[in-house]
Structure formats: structure tokens, C-alpha cells
Design a protein around this nucleic acid. Structure first.
Lengths: 293, 293
DNA sequence: CTGTAGTCATAAAATTTATTAATATGAGGC
DNA sequence: GCCTCATATTAATAAATTTTATGACTACAG
């Protein structure tokens, strides 16, 4: 069994045509026939039923099942190649969602500079979902992920780096701005300006809504924090953000939530469980997990 | 890249010797040298540092990382072969832990007989942990698993079939036998006879202990239900079992637990997510999930 | 009904790739 | 300096893959 045969087979599964598969790989048609026959011989089973009153190939149960595995195997090879390329370049590919990139990573980066590691880093900003996918497919070595729940995935290992609170943001002239804290259920009649669904803020918000049986109106959604802060400052509405994303110079007031069970913004350092950390990667992981910032 | 090379490489990683690896596969030593060189050329990286003041081979970071992937790939191929063998034999390999095999499966099997499916089944009795492992490595197609928590695993799909209660078992002459139900914390001074750690009963028991801050003494552990029932009948102690495992003819009395939050014995039908169900397997799954017994 | 185009299988030849036997290199031990 | 052990190199050979040429079968148009 060799990888080329697996590629042929996978393509055949998609094309349902020996001829087209052969054309795709710029080889002759009997090459595909022979390759599939070799696979069938090695696995001692029929994978494809040919001709059947002509016009359509049919894959047997074995063939369909085998294709699933082939996909997995080729994916694994792809992952291996990507990782090796990164090792050769001596670059560590770190994934970051935008908020962590803007508000958490900077303090971390000064630490990295001190240890001459920042130059080794290649940061990739993306949404959390995509980052997870890229980790699993070997497109990233490490990722800093924000989530409401601890990441539990057989394929991934994680370290908890930090837990941030969610806060309610109001303008300086808003009646609530005089208070220190507020209960979520008291915000029922407030119009909210929120980060959109791609941010875990919306999950945390939903969770609070459910818990407190309170569903405040969300009058506007955006993925731009500056817009949210601007709208809040102008009393268009109030918002719900991680404390991390609020800077002292922002023209808004942050109130703590007084609810008992409140969601937290968890920042975790994550990598594939069967990713072997190179010495540089290990240094970065150590630095992140042993320091507090 | 072909599979043989990957086998050679994996063995080299274990043996740390080209010569020994060659002997293992009954090939000449240059065969291994050449195979590794081909891999290095294809991946365009050095995998092994040879000779280094002689005596020891060293694998580079790329080499170590690659070996992890090779392991995964070869595992996947093994899984594929096992599954295809099972498909050819037209047998469905169903895993069962002992209690489910003895007390749940029989009622299911009469249903299977009715649809002429029992003959297609090949049951494998084993502990839950081993069953999970066998599912993932393709040694089983389906498994009925008992657990306290829903199975959450990226690689597995599951259907909840049944939820059974845990009960307290006492002899017919025991003072408690007059009661209908009992709170766990009132059992503090009772000596328990328990199934051993391989059964989820011990997890459920621990959970109840923790919840109620009550730690009754366990005076004997065994994996044999008959022994437990016998000892309970003779007033050696009381026990904690799923209702499922208690038959009307057993010389014991089963009491419900009156606690609010009590663990349940969940019976789930589980299979690998990327396992394609054959038509027979699909029939069995449908039968199990649409009937109640 | 016949001719044509399309699909896949087979066989033999051509080509590429993998393996071997023989030998070289290089280090450590004596 | 010589022997041993481990891996690399090389040329020859064996094995595998691919190609070319061809045949069988079917669908479809005329």
C-alpha cells in the first residue's frame, strides 16, 4: 500500500470515474485500474463495483468505510508535512483571536522580547473556531483561545492561563455609572450593544440570560470594539465585555456583575496532544504558564 | 511515500539501529538506509542524525514529530483493515460490559432474534475502558456502555438507550428492609459490600459519598454479583447496585435512594464517529434506539 | 440494426523504484 | 595498526508501477 494509491482511491471516490481520476493525476487510465486492484488485493475485499449495467460505479460498504480512513490518513500526512515545514523554519505559529491579540498578547509579548522569543513567533489572528481547526490540522503549533468553558477535547492539551470577568459597560453619564456593581436581571430594560456571534461574549451573554430568565434587547451587533465603546459613550445603549477589553482611557464605566454564578472569560494555551513541542515551543509554553500578567 | 517506509521508520525509532531494524524486517541494512533517505528527501528535512561520535542515533525534532504522525497513520491503517475484515465476515462486533451483558442484553436479544439479527452479532465482553479503546482502534463496531456521565468524545457518537437507578440492597431480615427508600447519608454506619473499581458502581458510590459528605465503610470488594447478593442475604453487609442487576428471585430487598441529586446508570450505544454503519449495523442501531425494553 | 463514443479491463513492454551484495568509511577498543 | 561494529555508497538485480495498445461492453444517435 502506498500513499499514491490512497490519493488515487480518494479521488476516484469523488469523481466516480476511472478516466476522470486518471486525467486529474495526468496518468493513464489503466494506472488507476491497477492501483485500485492492488488495494483490493491487499485488503482482500472488493472496494468498487464496476460497470453494473454501465454508467455508474458503486462503492461497496468496505469501499465507503475505507475511504473514510483514507481521508484520515491523508489528512495526517498533510498535518505532518505542515508541522515539519514550521520546524524547519524555526518559527512557532501561534493563533490568537482578535480580543486576546489586542488586549492580552501585548503584555505577554514584552516578556517574550526579554527572552528573545518574539522573533520566533508567527502570530495568526482568526476566530476561535477556525483556530481550533487549524490546530488540529497542523496549521498552527499553539493557540491562545478565549472560551467560557474549559476546552475538553481528546485531541488537544490545554493550560489555563487566566480567568477574566465579564463586566457591564455604561457611559459616564448613565444613571448606573454611579454604582459599583449590578445584577444581570436588573438590566432587562436596557438596550445592549454587543459583539457579534463570532465572539464568546454572545455565549456568555446567553448563559446569563438563561440563568437569570432575563432577556434584554440587543439593539446592535458588531465585531468592532471601538464602535461599541463609542456607542456606549454616546448613551445609545450599554454593553457586556470582558474586563480585559476595557482600558482606563476608554470613555466608559465598567460595572461588576453581582450575580453568583457568572461566566468567566477563560484564556487557555492549547496545542494538539500529539504535537511534540520543540525546545523553543517548550520555552514559550513555560514562559506563559509560569508567569502572571 | 509508502507504508513500508513508515513501518521501517517507526521500527528504527524504537530500535535506534539501522542494522537491527533491517534484521527485524528480514531485509538488508541498506534497504533501511535508503528508505529513510527517501523519506528525508520527500519531507525535505533531516529526520535522523547518524553516527555522531558513533554509537547513538539521534532523532531531530522533525524526526520525533514525524514519528508521532507515523504512529497515527499506521494505527489508522490497522483500524481500516480490522473493520474491513468484519464487514467481509458480515458480523457485527458488539462490545458489552459484564453487567449489561447479563442483565440488559438478554431482553434486547429476543428482539434481535425476531428480526433475524442475533446471528449476525458477535459479542465481546470486557471492561468499559477496554471497550472504548477497542471501539477507537476498530476492534469493535458497536458497544453498549454503562456510565454515570454521558460519553463526550470527539471520536465517538452515542445514543442514550436507557437510564437505570442505583439502589441499596439489604437482606430480607435487615431492619431497613421494611422501608421503601433511604437517604444515603443515613447509611454511614452500614458496612458495604461493593463491586470493584472496574465497575462504574464505584464511581457512582464515590459521587454520592462526596455529595453527601458521607463515607460508609466498604468491607469487601468483588467483581462477582452472586457473591455480593449472597453476602447481603446473609447480613454480612449491604450493597449498592443498579436496579437492573436485581432480579425478583434474588433473596434481597432493594431500596430506592431518596437523595435529590443521585447518579444514574446510563446505558449508551456507542460507535466511532467516522465508522460507517453497514446496512445490518444500521438495522441493529435502529432497533435498539427505537424500542424500549 | 449499425456505427460511434465512452468507460473500464487486460496484457505486454517500458520505466521507475526498491532491494541486494559487495564494498567503503569512520569511530572505538585493544 | 588492526579488528569490530555501524552506516553509507554503488552497481546490479528484482520488483513495482505505468504506459501503450487493444478488446469488451454499453449507451445512444441515426
Amino acid at each position: 500500500m502506498n500513499i499514491k494509491e490512497l490519493h488515487y482511491f480518494q479521488r476516484l471516490f469523488q469523481e466516480i470515474s476511472f478516466t476522470k481520476t486518471a486525467k486529474f493525476f495526468h496518468v493513464s487510465q489503466p494506472t488507476i485500474t491497477a492501483a485500485v486492484q492492488r488495494l483490493e488485493k491487499e485488503l482482500d475485499t472488493q472496494l468498487v463495483i464496476r460497470d453494473q449495467s454501465h454508467k455508474n460505479l458503486i462503492f461497496t460498504d468496505s469501499g465507503k468505510q475505507f475511504e473514510k480512513h483514507v481521508e484520515q490518513i491523508l489528512q495526517e500526512i498533510e498535518t505532518a508535512k505542515l508541522e515539519i515545514t514550521a520546524i524547519k523554519k524555526e518559527k512557532v505559529r501561534l493563533g490568537l483571536p482578535p480580543i486576546i491579540g489586542s488586549y492580552y498578547f501585548p503584555s505577554l509579548s514584552s516578556l517574550l522580547v526579554k527572552h528573545d522569543l518574539l522573533s520566533r513567533l508567527e502570530t495568526h489572528e482568526d476566530g476561535s473556531k477556525l483556530l481550533l481547526n487549524k490546530l488540529i490540522t497542523g496549521q498552527l503549533d499553539l493557540a491562545l483561545l478565549g472560551s467560557v468553558q474549559r476546552i475538553e477535547n481528546e485531541q488537544l492539551s490545554g493550560h489555563m492561563l487566566s480567568r477574566k470577568k465579564f463586566k457591564i459597560i455604561v457611559s459616564r453619564t448613565h444613571p448606573l455609572s454611579q454604582k459599583r456593581s449590578v445584577a444581570f436581571k436588573d438590566l432587562l430594560s436596557e438596550p445592549f450593544i454587543q459583539l457579534n456571534e463570532r465572539f464568546i461574549h454572545s455565549i456568555a451573554f446567553q448563559q446569563l440570560s438563561r440563568q437569570t430568565h432575563t432577556k434584554p434587547a440587543i439593539i446592535y451587533r458588531t465585531n468592532d470594539l471601538q464602535i461599541i465603546k463609542g456607542m456606549v459613550a454616546n448613551n445609545v445603549g450599554i454593553s457586556f465585555l470582558t474586563e480585559m477589553a476595557i482600558l482606563p482611557q476608554d470613555p466608559v464605566v465598567a460595572l461588576a456583575l453581582s450575580d453568583d454564578l457568572q461566566p468567566e472569560f477563560l484564556i487557555q494555551l492549547v496545542y494538539r496532544s500529539n504535537h511534540l513541542l520543540t525546545s523553543v515551543q517548550q520555552k514559550i509554553v513555560d514562559l506563559m504558564t509560569t508567569n502572571d500578567f
